[in-house]
Design a protein around this nucleic acid. Sequence first.
RNA 1: CGAGGUGUGGCUCAGUUUGGUAGAGCGCCGUGUUCGGGACGCGGAGGCCGCAAGUUCGAAUCUUGUCACCUCGACCA
Length: 479
Amino acid sequence: MAKEKKLVESITSMSEDFAQWYTDVVTKAELVDYSGVRGCMIIRPLGYAIWENIQKELDARFKATGVENVYMPMFIPESLLQKEKDHVEGFAPEVAWVTQGGLETLPERLCVRPTSETLFCDFYKRIIQSHRDLPKCYNQWCSVVRWEKTTRPFLRSAEFLWQEGHTAHATAEEAEARTIQMLNVYADFCEDVLAIPVIKGRKTDKEKFAGAEATYTIEALMHDGKALQSGTSHNFGDGFARAFGIQYSDNNNVLQYVHQTSWGMSTRIIGAIIMVHGDDSGLVLPPRIAPTQAVVIPIQQRKEGVLEKAAEVKEALAKAGIRVKLDDSDKSPGWKFSEQEMRGIPVRIELGPKDIEAGQAVIVRRDTREKIETSLETLAETVQEVLATMQSDMLARAKHHLETHISEAHDYEEFKDAVANKPGFVKAMWCGDVECEKKIKDDTTATSRCMPFEQEDISPVCVCCGRPAKKLVYWGKAY
RNA sequence: CGAGGUGUGGCUCAGUUUGGUAGAGCGCCGUGUUCGGGACGCGGAGGCCGCAAGUUCGAAUCUUGUCACCUCGACCA
């Protein structure tokens, strides 16, 4: 009896089958639908509204650091893509090609952008001549295409939405500073707005972006203990500049190569919101990102005055700046409760004849189902408070989950046991040799997630080979 | 790309072994009673069974081919 009743029978429970739970939530909360094109998803109004909020928040943060938005073509001539060797090798297996225009075969095939470094480089080469032209800090919101073998809504789709920032700087120091700055923008955004704590660190050479000198990442931990790379920021050094010939005259009139960065966050982060906060009743949206923060559910709505009062309450909340809706459909209240929970709306406000008589309403939190009876006079303020509390509680819970799912391994047996039996990140020392990374992956399927900025020294030797250790690495199974 | 699985009203599926008038539940439409955790009555609409050939008097069912999707691996945000 103590066991919580599962209110929504149509969602597979997390503990039973996490992958199926994810698919159920994504489709039943109407975030996405499958399309007629393999691996491509239809993002439905709720899913897209979440993305719009993400865009709004991130865009403001970018612009506060001096970033300007542009738009690049979605096609890249093959010759352009070929210019940076590591880059093309990294992306070649997953690009889509356009070979025909109208009825004619194209003289040079066009790649549908998997990312736009080459286009930005080609453009920067033309518009940068002097140190006075620097820095250039451009960003674009667009979709990209990667011909993935297996796909999942949000987590890995053949076409996905993202933003990609591309900057060019006079010095290596400036480029490095910008790389770290943008990583911090992502990390702060995840914590403050999405209530998702992340581990910040640097990727190993094996895991870094094709063509980058250094890749920094934020890694989030999903409810099932798997890691999700949630945003990346790359320092290209002058590698792309040399490949594309992007040079400027410094103040001594000496030609110098620019130093570049790029950084991106995609609709994949919506998958993180789902898998960090969701529960067996469906989606749970952090109030700050929720398209609808509160829904007013009238009880016995055909009774005299109920709907009118409900509409009044809704207006009052809207006036206070709360994103609120009134559900006056003729479904039963129980149905509406489940629907609200499935779609992750942070609070619902129940309002029936009894409440109206008492001059109150019942606020119910999505995350805890706590019921709070509140006077109608102070309802807006109380809802604001509840939303704020819920936001911070969600972050605290996610932090607790993260902290309690990090284990340490000092030798290989301990490591293999941790990967197999302790879901989450495993901290272990590494010698820096890619062969050890490969062996670990072959033996355990875990990959290096990052070398955290906050380094510790938990053992003098590599967890894999026993040679002297160079770095502490977070390892884990990843999406 | 490897291994498995599934295609039948909007959804979930039964029917296929043994060929013989296409079914159920949910949803949907109309209507009335309901309403504090997925209400109920009555009436109704909706499917050439993924697609294409073949076998047969007759194919959702048998044969061959083909396409799509899902799950798990290898590759990636």
